[in-house]
Each structure stands twice: as C-alpha cells, then as structure tokens.
C-alpha cells in the first residue's frame, strides 16, 4: 500500500511538472505553428527572476512570482518585436524559427550563467512543511505545484475555448488567411500569444525550480518533456495535455520504481516513438498533425 501511495505521489508530482513544462510550449506551437526552442530558457529566467527579487530585493514571496510573470510577458513581447515579427510571413518560417530560437535559448541561458553563476540555488518561493499519508511524507509544496499546474492548464483551455481572444487565436492557427479576412489582426495575435506564453513559462519556471533547484540549464529537460506531452496529447490540445501530463507522470514514476530511475526518460521516449507511429495526431486528438 505504501508503495502504491509512493508511486501515486511522485507520479502526480512528476505529472504536475510535465504540465508546467508543457503549457507554454503547447500554446505557441499549437496556435502559431511555431516551435519555440527558447521556451526552456524562459522557464529558467522566470525561476531566477523570482529568486533575485525575493533574495536580493527582499520582495515578499508573492510579489516575487508577480515580478517573474511580468518579466515573462516582457520577454515574450521582446521576442515578437525583436525576432518573430521579421520572420513569420516569410517562406521557411517553420525551420528558421527553430534555428533562431535555438540561438536565442543559447544566449539567454548564458546570460543567466554570467549573471548568477553555475552554482545551483534554492528557489525561495516555496511552502515549508508537509504531512504524512500512511507512511509516506508529502510536502505541501508538491500540492501547491499540482494545484497551480492544473489551474493554469484549465485557465488556458478556458481562454482558448470560450473567449473572443481564444477564438481569434484558434482561427489564426487554423487558417491565417481566413482570420485576416475576418478582421483578426494576425500580427497582434502573435504578439499576444507570445506575451501570454512568456507569462505561463515564467510562472512554470518558478514552480518547477521550487521542487528541484535553480540552474542555468534547468530549462532543457522540460523542453524535451514538453515535446513528449505534445506528441501524446496532440498539438495544441491543452485539455489533452493535462491528462497526458499526469498519465505520463504516473507511467514514469512506475518505471522509475520498478526498473530504476535511469530508465524513466528512455521509457517515455520509447512510448513517444510508438505513439508517433501508431497515432501521429496524438492519442487524444482527432486531426493528423505530426505526419507529413
């Protein structure tokens, strides 16, 4: 029974971490057809900004989170006005944007490294304490993360599904030309989506670093995990991503427990390859998007 609770708790925590890693990437990739390889670096910067605001500037915890979120919005906008604006109407956008954002990720990661050093820090935005369920210790911070990740996912799904902005984003994703002819200001939508994704990424970064540690390279692993979730859920399917994140969290926790920690990620990769061959449109999705 303890084993079961143990796997359940670490599975839910992993699932929450996946959900946090995925949400911003999935939003931008699904709605703008733009794979943002700098998403991981945005997570990292979010985590560090919260750390710096709380530790160096003495901000209260919550204000640290808000500062990180605000920085995320600014970075998202900077990305649009500095880079994406010049590219997204040209041929070869899909690959060129991957190269550009790889370069951007490299720059941001190394700027963080220069500013804070390679020494791993503890994220101060965290809740102390925990409780026992049967014989398993459960920190409150894990519950916070699970709550925030589900909350952000649900809020994003609601925004996309039930608001005017959400409809405009989906329209832009499905047919840029039709959206323009319906009066959707497509450029502004790009800027808005990137700003929103910056916000989500920064908050996710704070949450993720609160149960791991802050390190300049902390964003790389979530990028790959996010990809795995996007494949399983189907691109741009935010609700599906929520299920997929927790299912895969459980799966990885089980693999780690029974086969050893080092086989967790390889097992996920194998699952993704099978999924890509079996259902290239995602296990939870209708439409074919991954295959040519």
């Amino acid at each position: 029974m303890d084993t079961f609770v143990q796997i359940l708790v670490s599975g839910l925590t992993l699932g929450a971490m996946y959900a946090l890693s995925t949400i911003a990437l999935s939003l931008v990739w699904g709605s703008l057809n733009m794979l943002n390889m700098a998403q991981g670096a945005l997570l990292t910067i979010g985590g560090y900004i919260s750390f710096a605001a709380i530790t160096y500037l003495g901000f209260p915890l919550f204000l640290g989170l808000v500062t990180a979120a605000g920085t995320g919005v600014l970075l998202g906008l900077a990305m649009y006005f500095g880079i994406i604006r010049f590219m997204f109407e040209k041929d070869g956008f899909e690959t060129n944007v991957i190269i550009a954002t790889i370069g951007l990720a490299m720059m941001m990661e190394n700027i963080v490294l220069k500013a804070f050093g390679a020494y791993p820090f503890q994220q101060p935005f965290a809740v102390d304490g925990g409780f026992r369920l049967l014989d398993v210790h459960i920190p409150y911070q894990n519950l916070v993360i699970i709550g925030v990740s589900v909350g952000m996912m649900v809020a994003t799904a609601w925004l996309l599904g039930h608001t005017r902005l959400g409809r405009a984003i989906r329209a832009t994703a499905q047919s840029r030309e039709a959206a323009l002819l319906n009066g959707v200001p497509v450029r502004r939508i790009f800027a808005q989506v990137l700003a929103l994704s910056g916000l989500l990424a920064a908050v996710s970064g704070v949450m993720l670093s609160s149960i791991t540690t802050l390190a300049p390279t902390m964003g790389y692993d979530p990028l790959l995990k996010a990809f795995i979730i996007c494949v399983i859920a189907g691109l741009g399917n935010v609700a599906g991503a929520l299920y997929a994140a927790f299912l895969l969290g459980m799966f990885e926790a089980g693999v780690q427990y029974f086969l050893g920690v080092r086989f967790g990620f390889p097992a996920l990769l194998l699952l993704v390859i099978i999924a890509l061959i079996w259902r290239p449109y995602g296990v939870f999705n209708r439409r074919k998007v991954a295959r040519l």
């Binding site: 409809r167 405009a168 329209a171 047919s175 030309e177 039709a178 002819l181 319906n182």
Partner: peptide, 26 residues
C-alpha cells in the same frame, strides 16, 4: 469590404457555429 476567398478557406477544427461566429469577429 468582405472577401469570400476561392476554394474552401474554413477553420477545419472549429464547429460550424464557431466558424460563422468568426465572421462576426469585428
């Protein structure tokens, strides 16, 4: 100026109702 383009430029993943409502986006 309203332009109904050639071919079927619709929003494939939206419902018929949401497609029509996009027409009244302004």
């Amino acid at each position: 100026i309203v332009h109904v383009p050639q071919g079927d430029i619709i929003y494939p993943d939206m419902t018929v109702r949401d497609n029509l409502l996009m027409g009244a986006y302004l």
